[in-house]
Design a binder for these strands. Structure first.
Length: 201
DNA sequence: TGAATGATGCACT
DNA sequence: GTGCATCATTCAC
């Protein structure tokens, strides 16, 4: 859930990935404590937002007790409320990117395609979750478990194990076969808001 | 319909 | 200097 002056955005998390500590070669914690990842080793329930590929903000929830670095990446959300606001922020993010890239035609097609994007695909990917919720790295450190927090987790429903699919994490081939192959990506089976991304070889 | 590619800022070595 | 926990577009077929 995110609250701000213009209203409330809410959705159900339908896909996540787990990232461990020093030994996980795919985790930001593999470098040991750094300026960027330092909240990962702090108390759990805190937001860790990082910029990837120079343009996408990815939201993580710090896990494990204070002192042990770990986090869960929110990969996809099914939008439930504040959908127009999500759409607006998606457009804004795309517009900013295109302006930097300097392609007017690209912007036109980008906004046209976004308008054709169904509601349930507005946050179907880690970068898209960040864009739809208007989250950037400044949100790192936010207490996601405080009911008064403008960005927070709220209790959901218990899902039977059988409804959860597990598979390898996306885009972590660099970590080596052992770590890249671990089935630490979890998603609701067959859910239409799960990211369709396939590892690019 | 699917694979390749470019964009872009910054953490890290 | 290198490469990334991504996505949209372009170019084959």
């Amino acid at each position: 859930v995110r609250d701000d002056a213009t209203g409330r955005r809410a959705g159900t998390i339908v896909e996540v990935e787990a990232y461990g500590g020093r030994d996980d070669r795919a985790s930001h914690a593999r470098f040991g404590p750094t300026v960027r990842n330092r909240v990962m080793a702090g108390p759990p329930g805190i937001a860790y937002v990082y910029l990837v590929y120079g343009m996408y903000d990815c939201l993580n929830v710090v896990c494990e007790p204070d002192g042990r670095p770990a986090a869960v990446l929110i990969r996809a959300v099914e939008p439930l409320a504040g959908i127009e606001r999500m759409r607006n922020d998606r457009t804004r993010a795309a517009t900013t990117r295109r302006r930097v890239a300097g392609s007017g035609a690209g912007l036109a097609t980008a906004t046209t395609r976004l308008a054709a994007t169904p509601d349930h695909r507005l946050a179907s990917g880690p970068g898209l979750v960040g864009a739809a919720y208007g989250i950037d790295t400044g949100w790192t450190g936010t207490d996601l478990c405080d009911p008064r927090s403008p960005l927070r987790l709220e209790p959901g429903t218990i899902v039977p194990d059988g409804d959860i699919a597990a598979g390898p994490r996306v885009g972590v081939a660099y970590a080596g076969e052992d770590w890249a192959s671990r089935p630490w990506r979890f998603a609701l089976v067959g859910h239409r808001s799960v990211s369709g991304r396939v590892p690019a070889r």
